[in-house]
């Protein structure tokens, strides 16, 4: 049974695309046939982060409009077996995403893939709703900062009211919280919300915490998902998140428990 997972946040710049790239790569590394779709039509970024921008010929919108078929638009990742990217269009806008078109493509992808990752655009408008509409599960990416938490709260509300599962009274979308850009030092100084604060406000289950890391910027700029760099804190943290998502209990780290390793202290 294939699963559709939306990576969403409300606020921009919190790490949706970085997470989409890393999470999809992680699932594929574990032998799952995975496709990651860029829903940010008009601000195509995912292909950059995945390092395949020079191989984009056809895109998501071309497939929706019937100008190309899926196999022409899907880009096979060169590093990881089982990983495919469906890039967004740079020249169109989000209105080109129609519910019918998205539904048709997701149905087609479901026949072939174990996991379909939808990289949502920021905001709460049409593009974000299209990305979340058909989801079975959601990763809510949040920075430990009040405006990001507030926006995530809004998005969680929309997941439970404006999606297919909500409208057709099906079992609710399973929500996972992912806190990114976390800095233990600044939390201790009271400059940043703690994991506990964020969890208290959002009240959904925590999948993991990604520490603030210079490696992420480096990884994005070089087009290599950070999860492929197992030496880094952030890469390790994403690997653990994928393991936890697949129902495993990643090994506890030394004396301070698993969080300490995630924070890189």
């Amino acid at each position: 049974m294939s699963k559709i997972i939306v990576i969403t946040s409300g606020k921009g710049g919190v790490g949706k695309t970085t997470t989409s790239a890393a999470f999809a790569t992680g699932l594929a590394l574990r032998g799952n046939k995975t496709v990651v779709i860029d829903f940010d039509v008009g601000l195509r970024n995912l292909d950059l982060v995945m390092g395949c921008e020079r191989r984009v010929v056809y895109d998501f919108i071309n497939v929706i409009n019937g100008e190309a078929n899926l196999n022409q638009a899907l880009i096979k990742d060169k590093r990881v077996e089982n990983l495919f990217i469906l890039p967004a269009s740079q020249t169109r806008n989000k209105d080109a995403l129609t519910l019918k078109g998205v539904a048709r493509i997701l149905e087609e992808l479901k026949k072939d893939f174990d996991y379909i990752i939808c990289d949502s655009p920021a905001g709460i408008e049409h593009g974000a709703i299209m990305a979340m509409y058909f989801a079975d599960e959601a990763l809510i990416v949040t920075n430990p900062e009040v405006s990001s938490v507030r926006d995530s709260d809004r998005i969680i509300g929309m997941l439970s009211s404006k999606t297919r599962r909500a409208m057709q009274k099906m079992p609710a979308i399973k929500e996972h919280l992912l806190i990114t850009r976390y800095e233990e030092k600044r939390v201790n100084k009271g400059e940043m919300l703690s994991i506990k604060d964020v969890q208290e406000i959002l009240a959904i289950s925590l999948l993991g915490v990604i520490p603030e890391s210079l490696e992420i910027l480096k990884a994005s700029n070089s087009g290599i998902p950070v999860i492929l760099n197992k030496e880094t804190d952030a890469g390790q943290a994403y690997l653990d998140i994928v393991a936890r998502f697949l129902g495993e209990e990643p090994p506890q780290r030394k004396k301070k428990g698993f969080f300490s390793r995630l924070f890189g202290i």
Partner: peptide, 27 residues
């Protein structure tokens, strides 16, 4: 029973309103 999220609005037009979980900022 469910949390009331930011941006959501719940109205009890007649009678009491009882909420068993949290009401977020902006709700």
């Amino acid at each position: 029973r469910d949390p009331i999220r930011s941006g959501q609005q719940v109205i009890a037009e007649k009678g009491d309103l009882i909420i068993l979980s949290a009401v977020s900022h902006g709700a």
